[in-house]
Design a protein around this nucleic acid. Sequence first.
DNA 1: TCAAAAACATACTATTCGGTATGTTTTTGA
DNA 2: TCAAAAACATACCGAATAGTATGTTTTTGA
Lengths: 196, 196
Amino acid sequence: MGKAAATRLTILQKAFELIYINGYQSTSIDDIIATTKVTKGAFFYHFKNKEEMGLAVINEMMEQTMGKMLLEPLLSSENPLNAIYEMMEYLLIQDPYLQIKYGCPTNNLIQEMAPLNEKFSEALSKIMNQMLLAIENAIERAKNLGLVKAAVNSKEVAIFVTSGYGGIRNLGKLYGTNDYYQAYLKALKSYFESLE
Amino acid sequence: MGKAAATRLTILQKAFELIYINGYQSTSIDDIIATTKVTKGAFFYHFKNKEEMGLAVINEMMEQTMGKMLLEPLLSSENPLNAIYEMMEYLLIQDPYLQIKYGCPTNNLIQEMAPLNEKFSEALSKIMNQMLLAIENAIERAKNLGLVKAAVNSKEVAIFVTSGYGGIRNLGKLYGTNDYYQAYLKALKSYFESLE
DNA sequence: TCAAAAACATACTATTCGGTATGTTTTTGA
DNA sequence: TCAAAAACATACCGAATAGTATGTTTTTGA
């Protein structure tokens, strides 16, 4: 990676980190450059404005991570329903980059920016579509494997499960303890059993 | 109501409206006074600072509404499970004050402010505790009425259902259509049936 | 090697925002 | 009625912020 590309990446990484913690609007460009060795001139050389940088964070940082975290394990799983549960458990309990008090980066940005900025909505929709589709396909595959009742509507379940994930992340932010995560996971497991 | 109290209420109502749409941090005091006939002097006569006003919005506007919308119908319902579903359906589809693209006022504020402000977290926790407890009690009552399996854990279900509500509101903000609400409600209904 | 382009650095600006200082007007109650 | 307190109005301030103007340094490629 060239030096210029490294500078750009430094900006995006720090920006992602600060946006995850404080939100997009509360993250100032001065914040980003103060905690890196990047100057304002370099920042505006790489990005036309703050909005373009925010979109790059979504498209180049968040989307990739989400894809690798989701599509790969779900696509090849022998027990798709179980794979979804494991993914949730990983995201909520194991993932070292996500913290209870800061919630889920994607859901945070949706909450903050969806009503305010069409471009952000589009970029975030791609990520959520990835997630919804991955789960829907997994359920569909579970149906074909005879692991889930044929009457189950895959799309509805995907929406239901994805909603639950976003919501429990928000409850985690509020209460700051993973007790709620544990309770949620138990209920999720029961729910999945009801689909068999 | 005295004139002073009316001024205070005007501020709180407009503040709630703008915070619901744009978020707390993006709602400036200048915004609030520009769209009312309240001056800055009056604003700071009634509230020590912006934070105190924000807390008043939560405690005096949101908490009451939530209590009346939740506790009352759920407490007296003959079929508690059905009452929860009806409440969700009302909040998502019927409620004239809530809009798809702006999501849920409480969940919005949690998302934005929980990691940033302890006082906001406390105030918002009271509201969410109300909701969680109301649902938990309703499930418990359904169990006593023989409408729900004894093995069901009321607290876990309350957390699961509350998460789902917050999450689907966020998806609604992203996609701007109530198709997702409808799919969510169908899945919720199926889920409730699995508890019987 | 060396000029042109890319990449970065610094100082500055216009605007916004929360909050204050200092008033004036309105209400209250003895 | 009238003074004191409550309620409101206006002008202003300092800090923060996105973005720009104008440089200098580094890299590139012929």
